[in-house]
Design a protein around this nucleic acid. Structure first.
Ligand SMILES: [Mn+2]
Ligand SMILES: [Mn+2]
Ligand SMILES: [Zn+2]
Ligand SMILES: [Zn+2]
Lengths: 148, 148
DNA sequence: TTATAGAATTATAATGATTACAAATATGGA
DNA sequence: TCCATATTTGTAATCATTATAATTCTATAA
């Protein structure tokens, strides 16, 4: 039986990336943590288990993964970049209340078509912002009060 | 007849923003330059006519305009923020070849509806990337060669 | 096994966009 | 005119990210 670490190793090799310890750890983290983490979040979490890890390695590795198509960057917040191991085109929802980035399963006809208004599309970023389902249930209205 | 500067002054007053010289100049610039400029581009251009202008004032003013709904920030490139005086919801196309940000006139059913998958939408960012119509005509393929 | 070249990782410095802060200046009413 | 307040400015600080060069690892040939 192929263990999880072996399949991660294979994923790297298929993409022509040498499966080093640091790269395995970062890809493993991304596979297990699908909340669209930032470079800093990845670093902070892996630091505990890999004390020699450097922020530079995290950034380098993420850039390699990006180039090889193992992940997509999200520019949804306007400050840090978030990383998405799921490279299947999909949209995102950013909750202004709980700050979660939620995957959406809606589809885009233009992207499927490959072009919009004559321009050739190679990349799609669909970012919705507002209040997520859960926060709505809790009565959130993002700053403004709800009461009568 | 109402001059352009007077209508800009009025726009500010309607939004409850005191129409100072700096603010008038920046809003006037945004009205006349619809290519989605960055703070730096606005500063560089206005600096010539307003030599005392500071970068800080440009950033402050843009933040005020954003808060009051006079413009929308675009996080399309992942580096600098671009500003859009057109606050009507619309999508954008970023050309990887000529770096232009082009307005798209496609519409989003979910945004019109006001929610996606149960989440309440207040903001929409639709960013397509690829090669624009004009660059395609010129034979651009963004890095990779076209020949047989 | 050991030497060694090349790749990966690290620590540190640098960069670039943006914000924080406090001093200087302008503005509008008493 | 004088003064309180808002605006603008210059400068320093911050934050995410990249650049650079030194260090460490790794694979392989002698
Ligand atoms: Mn996602
Ligand atoms: Mn636009
Ligand atoms: Zn939420
Ligand atoms: Zn183009």
């Amino acid at each position: 039986m192929i263990t999880n670490m072996e399949s991660i190793k294979n994923t790297l090799q298929v993409k022509g990336i040498k499966p080093t310890y640091v790269r395995l750890k970062i890809l493993d983290y991304l596979e297990r943590n699908r909340f669209h983490p930032t470079a800093e979040e990845i670093f902070k979490s892996l630091e505990k288990k890999v004390p020699t890890l450097s922020r530079t390695s995290v950034y380098n590795t993420l850039n390699i993964f990006k180039e090889k198509g193992l992940l997509n960057p999200l520019f949804i917040t306007g400050s840090e970049v978030h990383f998405d191991r799921n490279t299947t085109p999909h949209h995102h929802f950013f909750c202004k209340e709980c700050k979660k980035i939620i995957d959406l399963n809606i589809e885009c006809a233009y992207f499927k078509e490959g072009d919009v208004e004559g321009h050739k599309i190679t990349e799609l970023h669909g970012y919705f912002k507002g209040i997520c389902k859960d926060c709505l249930k809790k009565g959130a209205t993002n700053g403004y009060h709800n009461s009568i």
